[in-house]
Amino acid sequence: MINNRITAMLGVQYPIVQAPMGWIARAQLASAVSNAGGLGIIETSSGQLDEVRGEIKKMRELTDKPFGVNIAQAFVRDPDIVSFVVDQGVKFVTTSAGDPNKYCSALKEAGLTVFHVVPSLAAALKAIEAGVDGLVVEGGEGGGFKNSRDVATMVLLPLVCSKVKVPVIAAGGMVDGRTMAAAFALGAEGIQMGTRMVSAAESPVHQNWKDAILGAKETDTVFLNRFGPGPALRALRTEKTTVMEKDPPEGGAMGEFRNALALYFGGDMEASIALSGQVAGRIDAVRPVAEIIAETVAEFHETCADLGARYGKA
């Protein structure tokens, strides 16, 4: 057990959260994370709320541990998304990709704990003003949708932590116990894993995507859509995304997601965009979630103890 504000607020054993990836962050993966002592998150960014409702029902069949739901505001199609989330009976929600003022008050009035995902200090301070309970501070090296003016975790995380008093979960580059220890040294009290969980044994994505992560170098991601239209994003380097990096499609990268399921579950790596963080360069095996979390926690404690022994004052 790691005792801090994050584990107390979320009711979990370890302050390790799984990123809310569209179509991927569903019961199969999220329940494995919760059962291993972390916090599984169910996505809504796919927009398939009927399916999401079913996934939440499955979660309750697969785990009796806490889990949360994400509201990715830029992709919300249901004006009653707050009622939808509240009706699912969850106690924790992350909001992202939008104004924290939009849903924070209504969610908190319903008794939920709310964390907002932020890519900059200005966004963090805006979320604090909105009344959030905590922050997910996401560095630009992480996969998925990004601020076009990306800032690395090593810069962003200590900056935000020096200016806010709420608990912080670090995202972007988080993959093992050493990165977790580094995040805690910079002020975080929890970490969020995305790419590591995409490549996990319980991840529902096609093996071709997992193999692409295992084969990737640390330089094998591209930053797309920096100048719009639409959100910027970080993805694995493929033939398609290499072309898009220099010659963005008319209308931006978002149109490529109309074929997302052919990549995600059909294995055609050129059909769409495989979102991924730079940390793909550090992942060399598909591992069960329970092993990933257990080894992360063990290495975290070992790293902290080793640093204390080597550099602590006598």
Rank of each mutant, 00 (worst) to 15 (best):
T44A: 01
P167M: 13
T44L: 06
S272P: 08
V160E: 06
K217V: 04
V118M: 13
I293V: 14
A285H: 15
G228L: 12
T153N: 11
E43H: 14
V12F: 00
T7G: 05
L261K: 15
K108Y: 12
K146N: 11
V175D: 00
E291I: 06
I56R: 05
E245F: 00
V33D: 04
F300I: 08
D150R: 15
E295Y: 07
E218H: 05
V117I: 03
Y264D: 10
V17M: 10
L261I: 07
E61C: 07
N259Q: 14
D78G: 06
P79C: 11
C304L: 14
H116E: 14
T95Y: 01
W209D: 07
V222W: 10
A216Y: 04
T95G: 14
A305F: 03
A124N: 08
R149C: 09
R237K: 15
G37F: 00
K58G: 07
A110T: 15
L10E: 09
Y14A: 00
V286I: 15
R237A: 12
G131E: 09
L62N: 11
A200L: 06
F115L: 12
A183V: 07
D284W: 10
L49I: 01
D99P: 02
R53I: 03
L10R: 11
A271I: 02
G172S: 11
G187E: 04
V82L: 03
F227M: 13
D211M: 13
C104M: 08
I293W: 01
H301R: 15
V297A: 08
A232F: 02
R258Q: 12
A122T: 10
G190Q: 05
G47R: 04
E256C: 14
F115P: 01
V168M: 04
S96D: 02
V86H: 04
T221V: 03
V286R: 00
M193D: 11
A36G: 01
S83D: 15
A130C: 10
G22D: 04
G98S: 09
P79M: 12
G22I: 09
Q73S: 13
D284S: 15
A185K: 07
H116R: 14
G312T: 07
V297H: 01
V85A: 10
